[in-house]
């Protein structure tokens, strides 16, 4: 519950800072508000248990980039209180467009079902007839659940599915490595081996499922946790994995993978090097660009 409160606090600080940056007319004030906004974002990062990113945000952004910007403000200030006003018309226009933009984005965020894409990964694609019957005749099954089951599944159309060797044990197919560690359910009693062939069920492609329906289906098949398993542990401590990833190693994935023979996940050594070189070039380029030059005689 503390987490939720903190989130709202930081979100408010961030949004307020950002809005203040837009609104304020003085550059120095803008810079101060920017610090506030970025600091709030760092807080959000900590909330997301991305402690290393948060720390980096504070160090580099708040400590470095902002200082750089303030240097820029000082070096380019032609008067002590420089105000370059925007015309009110432009301001209103920008505000209108911004409002539209934020509305568009928000509606997008809210309308998209972020979990929909993960349903199949959770192993709900194909179930044996046994499992399906078992779920359908479970005790205390509500009417809506029954309808869902009937709508979502159809008998497998192809007869040759029978010839296939046993489908994976039960509906819980641990295709997803992330999901593998979190599900521990035992196979259902009515195993596919004892069931006559040609009685498997598969998802009806014509019936799209929402994430809630998917979660309900998973629960019916005894797969509650598999659906929404998160990749990241709730607590922080991401410095070591991040450092290893930058060095080219992904123990967080490779140690958990199911198939020992699967290819080792690559790390970020090469991007790291690229970024390093990039930074070096930028450093030199910035120094070159910023050095004192002969002032151009104004044309007018």
């Amino acid at each position: 519950m503390n987490g939720a409160a903190l989130f709202w606090f930081f979100a408010a600080v961030t949004c307020a800072g950002a809005v203040a940056v837009v609104v304020s007319q003085n550059v120095v004030r803008m810079a101060v508000w920017l610090i506030v906004a970025l600091g709030g974002a760092a807080g959000l990062f900590f909330q997301l248990s991305a402690d290393f990113v948060g720390a980096t945000q504070l160090l580099i952004y708040v400590g470095g980039t902002i200082v750089l910007l303030i240097f820029g403000v000082m070096l380019t200030a032609s008067g002590p209180y420089l105000r370059i006003k925007t015309s009110p018309g432009e301001g209103f226009l920008a505000a209108g467009v911004g409002l539209l933009f934020v509305l568009v984005l928000m509606s997008t965020v809210l309308t998209i079902d972020w979990n929909a894409g993960r349903l199949k990964l959770a192993g709900l694609g194909k179930v044996s007839a046994d499992a399906y019957e078992t779920a359908l005749h479970k005790e205390g099954l509500s009417e809506s659940d029954r309808t869902l089951l009937e709508q979502a599944y159809q008998p497998s159309a192809k007869a040759d599915h029978a010839a296939e060797p046993a489908p994976k044990s039960g509906p819980a197919v641990a295709e997803n490595p992330e999901a593998a560690d979190s599900h521990g359910s035992a196979p259902k009693p009515g195993d596919v081996h004892s069931v006559p062939a040609a009685l498997a069920y598969e998802l009806n492609p014509g019936r799209r499922l929402t994430s809630a329906e998917a979660a309900r289906l998973a629960a019916l098949f005894g797969q509650e946790k598999a659906v929404v398993a998160s990749a990241m542990p709730a607590q922080g401590d991401t410095i070591r994995p991040l450092g290893l990833a930058l060095a080219g190693l992904r123990p967080d994935r490779d140690l958990n993978k199911v198939h020992a023979k699967a290819a080792t996940t690559p790390g970020y050594l090469l991007p790291f090097e690229i970024v390093s070189v990039h930074l070096l070039v930028v450093l030199i380029g910035a120094a070159y660009l910023a050095r004192t030059k002969r002032r151009r005689v104004e044309a007018s």
Binding site: F45, L48, S49, A50, F52, V53, T56, Q57, I60, Y61, G64, T65, L68, L69, F71, G72, W114, R118, L121, N176, E178, S230, A231, M232, T238, P241, L242, A245, L246, R250, D252, R253, Y268, P271, V275, H278, L279, V282, L283, G285, A286, A287, Y288, L289, A290
Partner: peptide
Amino acid sequence: SRYTSLGLDGQMMSLFVIVLAAAEAAIALA
């Protein structure tokens, strides 16, 4: 990164963004 299977990759991307933002700031200042 936190809520999907993206995992560490999302954080890594944000790190790169921070670094590039710093570089961009330097260049832009120049």
